[in-house]
């Protein structure tokens, strides 16, 4: 049985807004448990509470109620014991723009007491393709390079538990692939947030969806993916008789949200088991193309919201 290394119990955080008694719940009774060595992905739209949760778990912010433990220590009562265990990449870069990339890494290595930092800095810079830029001011770096430098900084500190807020934001496909492989082989507990479904799918063992400060769904990757498989988004292009097909689909019980946008009819098949019935309908028409569209993260969120309200 694996040890739980991050655990929250009814964790809530409220922010007071302008005006009398106006309070917004950034986190609402969050209960999660992450095992040692697990890569955990937290997905959610802007303002869902992802960063707030990371800030509490990394002792930066305090919850309004509830509790959390990281590495077996209470983040509120024992922050000094939590700090040596954690590495953080928060809200982008956490970098000093007015000093060089090397000075940034050196500074944090000295603060975090990393031995032989010079060799390690050069090695990780080479691995991340930053070696030529290491002695330039960070202000001159592209956004992707800054992101790589920030991640290099977090990894250099060699902490057991990593909190990564959008670690692949603004990176090209090749860099994302490199970072995914790097993180996968780290053998560390990673708590990450991302908007990139592909990254999360490749990297994470378990996933949670957070919307409006509440965890809507938490589970194994396959279990979460199944949610998007219930409904199938289909795009059909016809040579003619659009109106007829549209009318027929609108009257079909297992079809919903039929829309027409030249030259494509879009609709949702409520369940894959009705696929044969759909084919028999479409067979009557002069179909030019038919394709299944993967749901975007946003669509999955909406789907989750619908599931939640039902």
């Amino acid at each position: 049985m694996k040890n739980s290394i991050i655990k929250t119990e009814n964790l809530s955080k409220e922010f007071k807004l302008k005006g009398k008694n106006r309070v917004i719940k950034a986190l609402n009774n969050i209960n999660i448990e992450i095992n040692d060595g697990e890569i955990f992905g937290l997905l959610g739209p802007n303002g869902a509470g992802k960063t707030t949760l990371i800030k509490i778990l990394t002792t930066i912010s305090q919850p309004t109620s509830g509790g959390a433990c990281v590495g077996g220590y209470d983040v509120i009562k024992e922050p000094k014991k939590v700090k040596p265990l954690i590495g953080l990449m928060l809200e982008g870069e956490l970098l000093y723009y007015r000093i060089t990339g090397y000075d940034n890494l050196k500074f944090f290595c000295k603060i975090y007491k990393v031995p032989n930092y010079d060799q390690k800095i050069k090695a990780i810079a080479k691995e991340f393709g930053l070696n030529k830029w290491l002695n330039e001011y960070v202000g001159k770096f592209s956004s992707g390079m800054k992101m790589k430098l920030a991640l290099a900084r977090t990894l250099l500190l060699d902490r057991d538990i990593l909190f990564l807020d959008e670690p692949t934001l603004g990176l090209d496909v090749k860099s994302i692939d490199m970072i995914v492989n790097k993180l996968k082989n780290l053998n560390r507990t990673i708590f990450m947030t991302s908007h990139d479904m592909n990254v999360v799918e490749k990297l994470c063992d378990r996933i949670a969806f957070i919307i409006n400060g509440e965890i809507l769904k938490i589970g194994e990757k396959e279990e979460i993916k199944k949610l998007s498989n219930d409904e199938v988004r289909i795009n059909v292009t016809l040579n003619n008789h659009y109106a007829d097909l549209r009318a027929e689909l609108e009257q079909t019980s297992f079809i919903k949200q039929v829309t027409y946008s030249t030259p494509t009819l879009k609709f949702i098949l409520e369940d894959r088991t009705n696929f044969n019935d759909l084919i028999s309908i479409l067979g009557k028409y002069d179909i030019r193309s038919i394709s299944e569209k993967q749901p975007t993260l946003e669509e999955l969120f909406l789907s989750l919201l619908n599931h939640n309200s039902e």
Partner: peptide, 13 residues
């Protein structure tokens, strides 16, 4: 503004 303060705050010092 550089958002470097959190990195310092969680530093073990």
């Amino acid at each position: 503004y550089w958002k470097t303060l959190p990195a310092l705050i969680i530093g073990p010092f």
